[in-house]
């Protein structure tokens, strides 16, 4: 699609501009057809780049390093966190979650790229579930669901390329994928409680009772946490790193404009994924080496991908 081509061109120009290897004029010469659209964006980007090029003074850097060295001497050797990022018992609830995230951050980050079958994969799913619970708006939940759906496609892609996976693994991933897309559809219908009112719409894989309950509780945190009394079939892991920057002190019309822009952004994401996911899944359907039972699973995902509608 032309839109994605333009975004790629813009990004390539930005990479060269920001690294100083090319000027704006050189970039425009490379893409003459889109030059008129590229130029204002590149000039804006150049202005921003210059503005944020704040170089800290050597004195500042030395001062911070000095203080850091004092702290390092105090701390001694960095401590190792447990697998689940358990925090010390003495930590208050508010500090506990932050410590879990930072101390357990290595494991969480590592889990992000894990695949079904990896010991870290349950952490990946746990982290996704808690991200959804911490999302502050339906649009944010929908965006997260789309991102997670994208991960399911990557996982399916990986599994198809590694034929060691069995049909049950593929089925589980497909069910999660469908669940992610269902969530987007249901949220756009403004259903108040996804868990209570859409239980029939959820697939069995959504009720994941196999993921271990993380002792890293969310009872109070530096970032919003789910209620501890809320019943859920999914464990309550550490919060995701989502920047919940408070809105600017702007007028109501500006806030409303920001919500409309977020919806536009969400719809762009939906369009992007409904374009890209079928492309990725289709290639496996036409591969004669893929077993028919796996193709059945992929067809289910494809049907849902093509059926996803943008929000009104």
């Amino acid at each position: 699609m032309a839109k994605y081509k333009f975004e790629n061109e813009l990004n390539e120009c930005l990479e060269r501009l920001l690294s100083g290897t090319e000027t704006i004029e050189q970039c425009l010469q490379r893409y003459p057809d889109d030059a008129s659209e590229l130029e204002p964006l590149l000039r804006t980007a150049a202005s921003i780049h210059k503005a944020v090029d704040v170089t800290p003074s050597p004195e500042l850097k030395a001062r911070v390093l000095y203080n850091l060295r004092l702290k390092m001497a105090e701390v001694g050797k960095p401590r190792r966190a447990s697998w689940w990022g358990l925090q010390p018992r003495w930590a208050s609830a508010a500090v506990a979650v932050m410590l879990v995230f930072v101390l357990g951050g290595g494991a969480v980050l590592a889990a992000d790229s894990s695949m079904p079958g990896s010991p870290l994969y349950p952490i990946k799913i746990i982290t996704e579930n808690i991200s959804l619970k911490l999302a502050s708006s339906d649009i944010e939940k929908a965006e997260l669901s789309l991102t997670f759906a994208d991960r399911r496609v990557e996982e399916m892609d990986y599994m198809m390329a590694n034929s060691k996976y069995n049909i049950d693994d593929a089925d589980e991933v497909a069910s999660r994928y469908i669940g992610n897309l269902d969530r987007v559809t249901i949220l756009s219908s403004d259903v108040e409680s996804f868990e209570s009112e859409t239980g029939a719409a959820m697939t069995e894989a959504q009720r994941d009772t196999t993921a271990a309950q993380s002792p890293a509780t969310l009872s109070g945190a530096a970032v919003p946490t789910p209620s501890e009394s809320e019943e859920t079939t999914e464990p309550t892991p550490p919060p995701q790193v989502t920047l919940t920057v408070p809105p600017a002190t702007t007028s109501e019309s500006t806030v409303k404009s920001s919500e409309e822009t977020e919806q536009d952004e969400l719809n762009k994401m939906i369009q992007y994924y409904t374009y890209n996911h079928p492309k990725k899944l289709d290639k496996w359907l036409s591969d004669p080496n893929v077993p028919e039972k796996n193709k059945i699973v992929i067809r289910r995902m494809l049907q849902n991908a093509k059926g996803l509608k943008t929000w009104k």
Partner: peptide, 24 residues
């Protein structure tokens, strides 16, 4: 520094981890 013990280099750049800490 305090959390270095739990960080594992598994494909995600160290810088991305630092930015997450900054983010928090």
């Amino acid at each position: 520094y305090e959390s270095m013990g739990s960080y594992q280099w598994q494909g995600t750049p160290f810088s991305a981890w630092l930015f997450r800490i900054a983010h928090n």
